[in-house]
Amino acid sequence: MAANLSKKSLRSPLAEARGLGSAKHGTEHWWHQRVTAIALVPLTIWFVFGVIRHLGADHAAFVAWMKSPFSAVMMALTAAVTFHHAQSGLQVVIEDYVHNELAKVLSILAVKFVCYALAAACVFSVLKISFGA
């Protein structure tokens, strides 16, 4: 306590011990954003090549692509990690610019629900094509 007073810390000793900061979540959100960002580097490069190779492709060619287990897993991972990264990034943008508490919470919830619904639709579509006849 004395040490705390002498360096005029603005944080209480308990807050310092917990190390969770003003948002009460510590570095978890920040860390998840970095983990998904690192994962998206190879996934994005694979995705760009994949899309270029299937520009104007007909349905049969696209289905053949998604029938390959490697491509299906990569596409499902790309969609899942992209949406995880998107909702976590959009949350930060909303937290920075929306200051009305109710509007902030509601818009973050809406973004998360939409992102996870779209992610589920993408992954389901890939699996349907991959396992389909």
Binding site: T82, A86, G89, L90, C115, A121, C122, S125, K128, I129
Partner: peptide, 19 residues
């Protein structure tokens, strides 16, 4: 980043349409 988040709508349409 925000623009790409909007772009995921087209990605979703593409995959769902293929399915």
């Amino acid at each position: 980043g925000v623009g790409l988040a909007v772009g995921t709508l087209l990605l979703t349409w593409w995959l769902v349409a293929a399915a």
